[in-house]
Design a binder for these strands. Structure first.
Lengths: 232, 232
DNA sequence: CGGGCCCCTTGACCGCGGTCAAGCGCGGGC
DNA sequence: GCCCGCGCTTGACCGCGGTCAAGGGGCCCG
């Protein structure tokens, strides 16, 4: 792990707030795992004996039903951690995890982590903050699915991705559209249609390059009342 | 707080796993708060300085959009705790909480809790377990909204409420149908229709009394493939 | 450079569930 | 006992988004 990787590790809410030596002892001497696209890290129901830090690439967390349908509940990228909280729920992962692009991860052993918590209470607070962060993200996802239309959910996603709150922005879709669609709770076809409907609001798409004329206008659209496009 | 209340407190995942004196010091000498239906405990964005244990009655957690629509993200009953994790997320509640029936709660101070965590690491592990439990519940809720039909969501709710996994069961709807509908991500009218569609599967409803001929059959229906009622 | 593959888009169709409105039944008040 | 109100149900309608299918454009490989 080089200095750049270490910087990423220390940028996470979980490992950034604890002391240098605690972070070092947890991930410092762990090997970096390199996976290629399509690799399954773990499946729901398996014993949860580790959590992960993403150094590069993307990982999706999802649930599968008995008949094979899947619901993506999160996509994690560089500088994010996942499955930290799973290790405290009867030792089972409640979701499955798959690498969706070639990726570099650090795997942190759970047994070791639990021990550290017992003598490093500050680590416990960091873990709780991290769990709270994931909790908030899930609550917002539920809110969005329940009361935003497909175009509004797409707009919300774009606004969140924009580096600015107003004016123009050019952004790149972080992962392929089929995955993005699932993440937003819709089918790829609906994502296409949703992007088409955002065109009159100053959104143009070419491959994975998206340019937005006015981010504030998009944000307004997300908050516009009842799931419809109220005239324009 | 009498012995019965204390038993409820000790039945929660959060306060049941820690030592007697830690639990006692957190909630033992707290007064019991009695609220009547409609009272707002806190609103999203407020400083999160406490979490709650439900001794009786029901409390809903929900998010409101700028235009006034609301999405219920959870309903908590006797023996459950909520908002534990919020106190670690920048000190803000990500949701609002309202008492939906007359209720008896214990309010646990957050400042005190954080102090205890620093010198009682076992408490930290309990809190993480509790947070994980809520996390799993949210993930399942997302899964259900995304890939179950309205009748399936209602069936799943009934199965979960049943004391048995097979055979007959008679259960009572825990809260009024408008709230239940929102909790399940639908409108009251859709809940009515969904219950009507479950009638051929052995579900009969009279007021809030629900009787189920065969719980296993209902469970089967929930897992039956593609959101439809596959003939029969 | 041509062909095939894959991903994305666009169209046609339709079923689920939201909306609006009417009807019904239980319960409280005068 | 009568009336009114409220919560629930039922019906009619329709728009959103899923499904199925065809078309188009980039990219790799032969």
């Amino acid at each position: 792990m080089d200095a750049s990787d270490w910087r990423i590790v220390r940028s996470t809410p979980l490992l950034g707030a604890v002391s240098q030596d605690v972070a070092q002892s947890l991930v410092g001497n762990q090997p970096i795992s390199v996976y290629q696209k399509g690799h399954t890290l773990f499946q729901q129901g398996e014993a949860a004996d580790a959590f992960f830090v993403v150094l590069g690439g993307w990982v999706k967390l999802y649930r599968v039903t008995p008949d094979g349908n899947e619901a993506v509940v999160g996509v994690y990228r560089r500088g994010e951690t996942f499955a930290e909280a799973a290790m405290f729920l009867g030792g089972r992962y409640p979701v499955s995890a798959e690498v969706v692009t070639d990726a570099r991860l650090v795997r942190v052993d759970g047994q070791r982590l639990r021990q550290r918590i017992l003598d490093q209470p500050e680590l416990a607070l960091s873990m709780l903050a991290s769990a709270s962060y994931h909790l908030k993200a899930l609550v917002e996802q539920i809110e969005h699915i329940k009361l935003l239309s497909a175009p509004q959910r797409v707009a919300e996603f774009l606004v969140r991705l924009s580096p600015v709150r107003e004016g123009g922005a050019a952004i790149e879709l972080p992962y392929e559209k089929a995955l993005l669609a699932n993440r937003l709770g819709m089918k790829p076809e609906s994502l296409s249609r949703a992007l088409a409907k955002l065109r009159p609001l100053g959104v143009s798409v070419d491959r994975e390059q998206v340019s937005i004329v006015d981010v504030a206008l998009l944000a307004k659209f997300v908050e516009s009342s009842d799931r419809g496009e109220e005239g324009f």
